[in-house]
Design a protein around this nucleic acid. Sequence first.
DNA 1: TTGTAAGCGTTATCAT
DNA 2: ATGATAACGCTTACAA
Lengths: 352, 352
Amino acid sequence: MSTRRATIADVARTAGVSPSTASVVFSGKTPVSDATRQRVLDAAAALGYSGPDPRAASLRRGRSGIVGVVFQAPLGAAFLDPVIRLMMDGLADAVAPIDAGLLLLREGVAGDSPGASLTTAPIDAAVLVGCTPGMAESLAALRARGIPVVVIEGDAGADVPRVTLDNREAQRSLASHLRSLGHTDVAVVTLPTHRRSDPGWIDERRRQDITVDVTRHRLDGVRDVYPDAPAYAATASSIDAGLVAGRAILADPQHRPTAVLAQSDLLAAGVLRAAEERGLVVPDDLSVTGFDGVDVDGLAPYRLTTMAQPATEKGRAAGEAVVAMLGHHDVPSVCFSSVFREGNTTAPPPGS
Amino acid sequence: MSTRRATIADVARTAGVSPSTASVVFSGKTPVSDATRQRVLDAAAALGYSGPDPRAASLRRGRSGIVGVVFQAPLGAAFLDPVIRLMMDGLADAVAPIDAGLLLLREGVAGDSPGASLTTAPIDAAVLVGCTPGMAESLAALRARGIPVVVIEGDAGADVPRVTLDNREAQRSLASHLRSLGHTDVAVVTLPTHRRSDPGWIDERRRQDITVDVTRHRLDGVRDVYPDAPAYAATASSIDAGLVAGRAILADPQHRPTAVLAQSDLLAAGVLRAAEERGLVVPDDLSVTGFDGVDVDGLAPYRLTTMAQPATEKGRAAGEAVVAMLGHHDVPSVCFSSVFREGNTTAPPPGS
DNA sequence: TTGTAAGCGTTATCAT
DNA sequence: ATGATAACGCTTACAA
């Protein structure tokens, strides 16, 4: 009973048709008479054949139906970010029409040689998430293979299509909002400045070599309005990291800003907690802004004043770009806009 | 310049060796003299050949190096759960040694025909996450193809290896802990009872047809100690869902339990918020227990009394099981144990 | 509507 | 250490 698996040729033979006909029955690419189709299906059932082997099909077709999604962090950490989760949903939706699956690839995690999985994996295209300079090797490997690439929130060179956000302008809007409320003394909580960075104040030197585009651009946005706003870098985009930053920023009662601009909603949530710890009432004693416009689980009753970004749309756009590239179309880079959303965490500064 | 991609045959010819030798240079499966290796590598570089085509290799090898991970929810929703995220990390680690990637598959999401992606995807094995009866078709499709399957937290029949948790016993431990503290009046917040379920009290009728194993088993664990504990089903494992449930449970001051057992840490976090809303002090006025032992972002300064489950280990075990099955080894089901962890959210009932 | 035939690019086996 | 050969299982022009 240890006979090998039936192939489409076996099915064809049993059904008394040619292999090509049997193939067509399964792919549906060409009309087949009902009678033959039924005979083929019956033969398949009899032999326990459950459709073409995807490996063989993909060799012949030159397509595997798989899109690689490349992260620079452990999966669990990446998915901590609600924006990434929404993006994945959009991506999954967008590639569903071509029946593609998403293959998770981690780059630069201990134990994986650079680009190895990228060259061994049968992917038709790749989406790089948050492309920093460290991804250069991965990128080179992909190009060498002629695999279409799209980058989300990052820069991979002129000829790689990007899906980005108006980070600087968006953050500037929030800063302007605070200024129009009368705030003059604000502080910033930034996202990590490097792939792995310690928490701490950002001096001019550190500022110079921020390698994470999003972080730099959003910081620039604040500085457009408040050129001297002090900034504290968090180690991650999380509530806990925001709490740490918030504590640092609110530590000295003599030198306390009247508003904090956090570079993500999660960080903002952490700042809110830090404020609570200090006995500060938001927004009366302190205004706090976020960024992303995601549902932060457990944030109620606060509604953050924030910039809502179309995270799912970004994923969808990346997916659509990939689909287009597989169809040999040129695809342009796209930059999405965030929209200002006022919540109940901002107000004029105390005593105004 | 639109010439087709170089193949290993081209490289071999250029290097003046046979295709098999060239192949071996890349796979390293057989010793090759340094001289020839270098010639092959040079030829490859000259032709812009960057290694064997994974599609062809996987046909020949009969392996694609891809493990499917099957979810029953939109990706974004699944990854909301910290336990799932940890599990993914463990899974990724465990399959890394065989250089396998993880292919995300969603089952039963609008637009995907049942089992379609499972039969089209070139996967060597599959991990079903949270296998409910609704996954029967997916399972059948996999078996028909002879693809090894492992199930995490679910039941797929006797001959499918499972990775599970001692849910009932673990939950019973927490209930016992509360009883030993003197609580007699407790309520439960459960995980969803069905794949999609509305929030609400669980009456005997609803109790009967809970299709989610985890939910049922943990509820059984409480009822082992408190046979009449009322239970309120949440719609998801999230802080917000826990908040809703907590509000319902704490609504009536006359009928207020002195302790709430939540079936996940996230739900427990929500209950904590509900308690705060009502002006109740935890643990003085109300004890709250969680389940999972994960870091709930933003939960500080609380430390939940909970059962810590080895989530990463579960993922790793599933990955190792898959690797073993691919090596034609039999693998047993494994059931992990949770360990009791006391935090600062439980105490004797008020006035005792 | 169905059949014929020619690969898709690689690797395992077996000689040499 | 290297080479010749034969699959791996399928799809798709093209012909009938």
